[in-house]
């Protein structure tokens, strides 16, 4: 399974990643970073398409893809 890593200190809680995810596996986590922004979490099977990272204005997401995953990066 591919995965995304949130650099939570960079997150501003805008949720553009949540909206961008084609398989809808991202969601608000209920946790807040030291800026006071609610950070996101992954729950489900990631395809490694990196849509979330492409749409993140704060470059707060890294994407790791496994060979078997489908999808393509920016």
């Amino acid at each position: 399974m591919s995965r995304v890593v949130f650099l939570e200190d960079r997150c501003k809680g805008c949720r553009l990643c949540v909206a961008a995810c084609p398989v809808q596996i991202l969601r608000p986590s209920g946790r807040f970073n030291h800026h006071g922004y609610e950070v996101m979490e992954m729950s489900g099977t990631c395809t490694g398409c990196a849509s979330c990272a492409v749409m993140c204005p704060d470059v707060a997401i890294r994407v790791f893809r496994t060979a078997k995953s489908r999808g393509h990066a920016a």
Binding site: S2, V59, R62, R65, T66, A74
Partner: peptide, 17 residues
């Protein structure tokens, strides 16, 4: 976070700064 940012076997970092 450091551990999470380390690619596991078979993983490729496909989005980075």
């Amino acid at each position: 976070l450091e551990n999470l940012l380390r690619p596991a076997e078979g993983e490729t970092l496909v989005f980075d700064t």
